[in-house]
Amino acid sequence: MINWVGRKIIAGYAYLAALGTLFAQAVFDLIVPPKQGRGETLRVLVKQILFTGVDALPVTTIIALLLGIIIVTQAGTQLPRLGAGGLVGSIIVVTVIRELGPLVTAFIVVGRSGSAIATELGNMSVTREVAALRLMGIPISRFVIMPRMVGMVLSMLCLTLYFDVVAVFGGYLVADAQLTIPLDAFAESVIRALSTTDVFMTAIKGLGFGSAVAAVCCYHGLAVRSSYTEVPQHTTRAMINSFVLCLLIDVVVAVPLYL
């Protein structure tokens, strides 16, 4: 039993070290300009931003709007009874901007783009496209991993901030219709509850979640060896590990700050 636990802990550390190495290599590739192939790498980066960021806007809008509506609806059923109807803005800041915004955005990105990256890289490994790139003298870290990581981090950051704004707007729609709170009062309540730290932490979480999801999904995609049956297995593992890692990062960031 102790051996088993020890092995699992060592494997866990090795896994995190591998993700850290992948991330550090991507940062290095981003900072140190490549000797060649800048145009091609930029093309991959733009494609990744379009796919992960721009194409995800409709689904992010719908989910954020609905989440904002649900939260304020639920808050609206309880707060007036306590004579705290004016706290609607605080509720939306605490739940959406501090926590649910970054987390739900991360889950959307994992489900949409993370799984796509893991599957794409897994298939590329099986069909030997990854090997072919190496043989053409095109470094995988620069051409495949770095643009996907940078694209995902930037997209996650922007989507998180966008999600927050849309969710707050969704909350306002209910506040206006159900609780008859006018726009200026709602906006004042939100702004009063919102601190610079909240916005900063949301951005930090967006960056952290984006980095973690990109590293995990690239790692599992490239871990596929020779069989197509490995692709869904690694994709599932990538998604689960991404969710866990995002929650872990959230705890590490949020607990010391707000406890």
Partner: peptide, 22 residues
């Protein structure tokens, strides 16, 4: 892999699976 002067660029390889980017 990253060295533009490497022999890599002077060697053309076709594996059993062609590996064209899909």
């Amino acid at each position: 892999d990253d060295d533009p002067r490497s022999a890599r660029l002077r060697v053309g390889v076709v594996l059993q699976q062609p590996g064209l980017l899909s």
